[in-house]
């Protein structure tokens, strides 16, 4: 069994959600993670804070980002155990992130150390 990282890609990290909406997302995310953990296939994960993020570019140029020119950003990740990329993709399909239009989940196998 391999480990895969499910990367939450938000189309627009600058979008502000209402507290009620965030509450619902949180619950949905916990149910989603709980469902993976119930199969003993959840390894770990975390959310990333959108606010006050920086992009460090070539030559050490620091920009406030990623909400200037590039809106797309990474909102968090979950690491799962799966028999195949297909199984990892099935997990990714359940993520509430995908309810946001334009949002995507990137599924990547973690290189073995």
């Amino acid at each position: 069994m391999d480990e895969y990282m499910l990367i939450f890609r938000n189309e627009d990290g600058g979008k502000v959600a209402s507290p009620e909406q965030m509450q619902i997302w949180m619950k949905q995310t916990m149910d989603w993670i709980g469902g993976i953990a119930a199969q003993n296939k959840y390894v770990g994960g975390n959310g990333l804070v959108f606010e006050n993020s920086k992009i460090v570019g070539h030559n050490g140029v620091v920009t406030n980002g990623p909400f200037g020119d590039i809106k797309e950003t990474i909102g968090g990740y979950a690491i799962v155990r799966a028999e195949s990329i297909e199984e990892a993709v099935e997990f990714a399909k359940g993520s509430p992130i995908l309810q946001g239009e334009g949002n995507t989940m990137e599924v990547r196998k973690i290189a073995k150390g």
Partner: peptide, 28 residues
């Protein structure tokens, strides 16, 4: 039941066990 479900979700992340997985599904 919502409280119980969320607690089971968290518990499974801390430590998996088959019986917790089953109880969580019942709460669901």
């Amino acid at each position: 039941w919502e409280s119980i479900l969320q607690l089971y979700n968290k518990l499974l992340v801390v430590e998996y066990s088959p019986i917790v997985a089953l109880n969580r599904t019942f709460a669901l």
